[in-house]
């Protein structure tokens, strides 16, 4: 049973490790079991990346460190575990990137979502098209719409207050980030520029995402 949490995929350059769940101890247990089944084969393997829908950066780093020091894995990008945290902190401090959710897994939706259609995903959702009224998007992470967002968008489901919703035209019926629900003010306000919605001090703030516009 526990083995199903882990899958190891080998390609020419090395191996990917796909992880399910977000409980480090369980992941560690089943990962070590899997490696010990074939210890000679894995020793010194080249690790390309660790991926997983619910994987946090902390767990990812832990897994990488475990593999590096206990099983002699060679990490393809050493900086992944060493510099990443620092790099991220720096960028946020210097305001170079908005304080958004760590990238993670992303679902791409091609075409227009119509009334009654719903997309739910344990990660980010990117819609290449419009989201019409009556359509619903639910994401654990961010929601990006390359078009008009007129339906309901719920980002950051399950406590992710850093999640954002952005669209070329942000005109949602209702917008939710984590457990905060807002609706647009009465009256038609149609902005011709792209906007981004995020939580700042427990309020959803909507602003242009190109500061110069």
């Amino acid at each position: 049973m526990s083995n199903s949490m882990i899958s190891i995929k080998g390609i020419a350059d090395g191996v990917y490790i796909n992880v399910e769940g977000n409980d480090y101890n369980k992941i560690k247990e089943s990962l070590e079991m899997k490696i010990n089944e074939n210890i000679e084969f894995f020793k010194g393997s080249k690790l390309i990346d660790v991926v997983g829908e619910e994987l946090t950066l902390d767990i990812k780093t832990e897994i990488m460190l475990l593999l590096k020091y206990k099983y002699d894995f060679v990490l393809k990008n050493e900086y992944m575990i060493l510099d990443r945290e620092i790099e991220k902190e720096d960028l946020i401090k210097n305001n170079k990137i908005p304080n958004i959710v760590e990238e993670g897994m992303t679902k791409f939706v091609h075409g227009t979502l119509r009334s009654g259609q719903e997309v739910s995903y344990n990660g980010n959702i990117v819609v290449i098209g419009d989201v019409n009224p009556g359509a619903v998007l639910r994401a654990k992470g961010n929601i990006i719409v390359l078009g008009l967002l007129r339906g309901v968008a719920h980002a950051g489901i399950g406590g992710n207050k850093n999640a954002i919703v952005a669209a070329y035209s942000l005109l949602p019926t209702q917008l939710r980030i984590d457990d905060i629900i807002v609706r647009p003010p009465e009256g038609d306000s149609y902005y011709k520029y792209p906007e981004i919605a995020r939580i700042i001090e427990d309020k959803v703030i909507i602003e242009p995402y190109l500061p110069n516009k």
């Binding site: 979502l113 119509r114 009334s115 009654g116 259609q117 019409n132 009224p133 009556g134």
Partner: peptide
């Protein structure tokens, strides 16, 4: 709105 729904189902 209903037309939009129906177009989605047709697709």
């Amino acid at each position: 709105r209903d037309a939009d729904r129906v177009i989605g189902i047709l697709e």
